[in-house]
Design a protein around this nucleic acid. Structure first.
Lengths: 221, 221
DNA sequence: AGATCTATAGTTAGACT
DNA sequence: TAGTCTAACTATAGATC
């Protein structure tokens, strides 16, 4: 891909008030959320109380607080960390609620993190599924592969063929052994078919899914 | 340069409270100044008013404000006039807190929903990956399979063996064709190696991942 | 108005000083 | 306690949809 080298610092912006209204609005929104995220991380990592108040260019107020904005401001204004009047007036119930908020905030942060991981997994899986759906899609990509990649792919499939043969033989042996005592598990406990007969399985389609893999996933192309 | 791959993310830290006191103190100090810097940039770029209050782990207070902490807090409190009245104070705080809780709960519910979907995708992928990691795990499960399942598995693998052989032959043909014009793609455009030489690929391990699949995924056991 | 993408700029954990 | 360094991670401007 060719970059426009005539503009070396396209992404660097001057540290002065943004002139263009729309850009300012977008930047404000992005940076405000970035600021709140940083604050939330500071709370989580260091277990401290934080309050942030931001007025938008339009005068709208945004705030962030842990455990909440008011109590932190109050603590700041009274300069009395240990006895702040909030707890003096509102008692056990309030404490419970504070705990709830802390818990919710923590859970939320945790969830966001997990979600990120899961989403990445999900994307990869989507690729696998896509590969399975378009059965022969990857075949079409062969023409786009370089020689060395093709050779690697061929070698890999050859090896797969051999190994799969071994596995099939092993299974053959297992099946034959089992044939003598069809309903007796190795541990000697009698077992039934467990309703597996009703479970229709199309083996071919299952297998098809297996080898119509996406080369990108398995060969790092 | 050789990196220590056994520690893939030396610089990544878990998003939870830092256990080691000294590390926590250093991180708090660094991140606090980072937070204030971000806030100052937001003020400069967008010309907005901001106030930040942070209590250190030791209870010491740090603050940032533009134009001043007090004035911004005052502007915030003025929007909630009754906050200076102690009796009303709790009500306002409670109202805010209730709103916060509602918002958090809503966000949480939403996240849980999304997470469920993503997790389902992720789990399936995990199983595939797990199957790849524990190379022969599924072999151990053979002993626990019923006769009919074993037969289905055997048939499936036999079919796979045949089909893979066909694929390998197809690839052989493709490679041979390419051998005549190693650097000429079918569309007639000349192509280079595109740096694929530097891309070390262990084909066997990739393939191993393919056929050490989890029977549960492909045969519905 | 908001989401996504890409490439660059900026932040930071841990090791040292 | 605070500054420096480096490699890695994160934020984000601008474009696009």
């Amino acid at each position: 891909m060719v970059k426009n080298n005539s503009i070396p610092s396209r992404w660097k912006i001057e540290m002065k008030k943004i002139a263009k209204k729309t850009n300012l609005q977008v930047t404000f929104s992005k940076r405000r959320s970035g600021l709140f995220k940083k604050a939330s991380e500071l709370c989580t990592l260091c277990g401290v109380d934080v309050a942030i108040i931001v007025f938008s260019p339009a005068g709208k107020v945004f705030s962030f607080g842990h455990p909440h904005v008011e109590s932190t401001i109050d603590r700041f204004l009274t300069r009395n960390p240990s006895i702040h009047n909030l707890n003096a007036h509102c008692n056990v119930v309030e404490a419970h609620r504070d705990a709830n908020i802390r818990e919710l905030n923590a859970r939320l942060a945790q969830l966001v993190d997990i979600l990120e991981v899961e989403k990445r997994k999900g994307q990869a899986l989507d690729e696998v599924r896509e590969a399975g759906r378009k059965q022969w899609w990857w075949q079409a990509t062969i023409n786009e592969l370089g020689l060395s990649e093709l050779q690697q792919l061929r070698n890999a499939l050859e090896e797969l063929k051999i190994n799969v043969g071994k596995q099939a033989d092993l299974l053959q042996a297992a099946v034959e052994t089992r044939n003598c005592w069809p309903f007796l598990a190795p541990n000697g406990v009698e077992t039934s078919g467990l309703g597996s007969e009703g479970n229709e399985v199309n083996a071919s389609s299952g297998i098809t899914q297996m080898y119509t893999f996406d080369p990108n996933l398995y060969f790092g192309f």
